[in-house]
Structure formats: structure tokens, C-alpha cells
């Protein structure tokens, strides 16, 4: 009996790690096959546009509102700190740097996971449980080309652009708090921002948003597309809701992890 007490957790640890490894392998192959569709013809332009509208155009308002408030709160916090050192003229650079390098890419990615990533995962998951993906296969329509590749392109295009929109709105949100409310000079706000934010900071932000977009679309479509292969998988609506929750958690954690790695490599 005492042996069992030790064995069972070890067994379940082994099973869990094997299952995780297996899933990682499947996800890797999934990613490679999806990316190979760059060479597949024809590109489904209309589907790509529909996906860009879904991921990008329909997220603009959320991103703008979030960007404005994030810019405002960052300016508020930095103003409160900088005023103690008498360096409120640095407010612009503080807001600009934190938005462009960190907050813009990360928060945009997290919002997009919640708004578009989860919906994409659920949609693909429903298509899997309802045999729609099998039906595409049986119609000789490659689901990787028809279903997944347009989503990869859409996220890859939309997330960096949404990040840029988030940053610009955030900068003006910071301007509103700093210049309009706390009367920091407008010239100092924009000049210090322009002076401190360098091309390397911008390219770090863009790199992050591109990497994040790939992570989001990969995890969210992959989890839904491969859900029938999961061990102890539940069918139907419950299975889809589980796999969607899973995708949101994994995608969010991967983004924060990748954020640290990229920052460490590029700083």
C-alpha cells in the first residue's frame, strides 16, 4: 500500500509528460503543414479578407479603448513618480518606451487572444466535432489550405497593425493625462519621446507583435483542429469549451514567456 502511494503520482506524472510531449510533437507538425500552405494554390483571398475583418477590423474599437486607458494610466503612474524627482519632462519618453517595447505588443496580444483567438479555437473545434473538417477532406478541399492558412495570414497581418494602433492611441492617452491634465509642456512630452524611443525599440515591438501573432494563431487553431486526438477527450460542446479554455491559457502564458525571451535577446 505504501508503494502505491509513491507509484501513483509518479505514474500520472509520467503519463502527463508523455501526453504533453506527444501534443507538442503534433502541434509542431501541424505548424509545419500549415505554414507550407504558402506554396499551395490557390490562395483563398476572400477567406483571408474575411478573417482580417474578423481579427483586425472588428477589434479596432476594443484595441483603441484599451490603448487609450493604458496610455492614460501609464502617464498617471509615471507622472506621480517623475514629479518626485522633478523630471516630468521625461514623461513622454517613459510613456513611449513602455508602450512601444512592452505594453503595446503584450496587451494587444492578450486582448486578441480573448477576442479572436478563443473564438477561432471554438469555431475550429466545432468544425472538428461536427465532422465539417472531415467533410472538407472528403470534398478534396485541404482544410490546411482552406481553413487554417487564411487564419494564419490574418493574424500575422492584423496583430502587428493592431499593436501599432494601440501604441498611437496610448501615446495620445498619455498626452491627455500628461499635457492636458497635469500641464506638462507639449513640446517636452513629444520631444523627449522622440529622443528616447529609437528604431531598435520600435523593431523590438514589431518583432514581438509578429512572434505573438504566430503564437496566438498557432495555438488557437491547433488546439481546435487537433482536439479529436487529445487523450481522454470529451466530445461535443463540453470538449470544445475545454479545449478553448486550454488554448486561451496556453496562448497567454506562451506570450508572456516569449515576451521575456525576446526582451532578453534584444535589449
Amino acid at each position: 500500500m505504501r508503494m502505491m502511494g509513491v507509484r501513483l503520482p509518479l505514474i500520472s506524472l509520467g503519463q502527463t509528460s508523455l501526453a504533453a510531449l506527444e501534443e507538442l510533437g503534433r502541434m509542431g507538425i501541424f505548424f509545419a503543414v500549415a505554414m507550407r500552405q504558402i506554396f499551395a494554390r490557390p490562395w483563398e483571398l476572400r477567406l483571408i479578407l474575411q478573417q482580417i475583418r474578423f481579427v483586425g477590423a472588428r477589434s479596432v474599437v476594443v484595441i483603441a479603448v484599451a490603448g487609450a486607458f493604458v496610455g492614460m494610466v501609464v502617464a498617471l503612474q509615471f507622472y506621480d513618480t517623475l514629479v518626485r524627482f522633478g523630471s516630468v519632462s521625461m514623461l513622454g519618453s517613459a510613456v513611449g518606451l513602455s508602450l512601444v517595447r512592452e505594453l503595446g505588443p503584450v496587451l494587444t496580444a492578450l486582448i486578441i487572444i480573448g477576442r479572436a483567438g478563443s473564438a477561432t479555437c471554438a469555431e475550429i473545434g466545432i468544425m472538428r466535432t461536427d465532422n465539417q473538417i472531415d467533410a472538407l477532406e472528403c470534398m478534396a478541399v485541404d482544410p490546411y489550405r482552406y481553413l487554417l492558412f487564411p487564419r494564419f495570414i490574418a493574424f500575422l497581418v492584423a496583430v502587428p497593425l493592431l499593436t501599432a494602433i494601440f501604441n498611437v492611441i496610448g501615446i495620445f492617452g498619455g498626452w491627455f493625462v500628461g499635457v492636458a491634465i497635469f500641464k506638462v509642456s507639449q513640446g517636452a512630452y513629444f520631444q523627449s519621446m522622440a529622443d528616447t524611443v529609437l528604431v531598435s525599440d520600435l523593431s523590438m515591438g514589431v518583432t514581438k507583435s509578429i512572434v505573438f501573432s504566430v503564437l496566438i494563431v498557432w495555438i488557437c487553431t491547433g488546439k481546435g483542429f487537433l482536439m479529436h486526438l487529445n487523450q481522454g477527450m470529451v466530445f461535443g460542446a463540453e470538449g470544445v469549451s475545454r479545449v478553448t479554455t486550454d488554448a486561451v491559457v496556453v496562448a497567454s502564458i506562451s506570450i508572456l514567456f516569449a515576451d521575456y525571451i525576446i526582451s532578453a535577446l534584444m535589449l
Binding site: 475583418r53 483586425g56 477590423a57 497581418v157 502587428p160 497593425l161 501599432a164
Partner: peptide
């Protein structure tokens, strides 16, 4: 809408 989004971005 896609065009507007791309221009804005």
C-alpha cells in the same frame, strides 16, 4: 472594412 483597417494600421 478590411481596407479601412489596413489604412489605419
Amino acid at each position: 472594412s478590411v481596407g479601412l483597417f489596413l489604412v489605419l494600421g
